[in-house]
């Protein structure tokens, strides 16, 4: 189980970094979106192997539940990430409007 998570994290980080290093603002946006996912899964993985555990809706004490804290932290992180991504999208739009291009080289040599 953890092996799969680890692999997902690795792939997501690699693809996101590759996209962020592109020369166009749209792939960069996609890259940051993937980077968010990558960090989120990393944080979630910290709660350990969920196999054989229950979701943290506690009806009976003494049973084995997954750790609720990483989930709660992640909830906050996802929402914050959403706010920032929304801002990033609009910023990229403004940059596109100001330079009429989505190419990083064009934008910075404008």
């Amino acid at each position: 189980m953890t092996t799969i998570t680890i692999l997902i994290v690795g792939v997501l980080f690699s693809t996101s970094v590759y996209l962020i290093l592109q020369r166009n603002i749209i792939p960069i946006l996609f890259g940051f979106s993937l980077l968010n996912h990558a960090a989120n899964i990393f944080l979630l993985a910290v709660s350990g192997d969920p196999t054989g555990k229950k979701a943290p809706i506690v009806t009976l004490l003494g049973e084995s539940y997954v750790d609720p804290l990483p989930q709660a932290l992640l909830l906050t992180a996802i929402v914050i990430g959403f706010g920032v991504t929304a801002y990033l999208i609009v910023l990229l739009y403004r940059i596109y409007l100001s330079h009429s291009s989505t190419n990083i080289e064009d934008i910075y040599n404008d």
Partner: peptide, 21 residues
């Protein structure tokens, strides 16, 4: 660079999960 970045995070996570958190 991108492959390396994935590799880094993988190793770190792997190490973390080697012991029960």
């Amino acid at each position: 660079i991108s492959v390396l970045s994935g590799f880094v995070m993988m190793i770190v996570l792997w190490f973390l999960l080697s012991d029960p958190p």
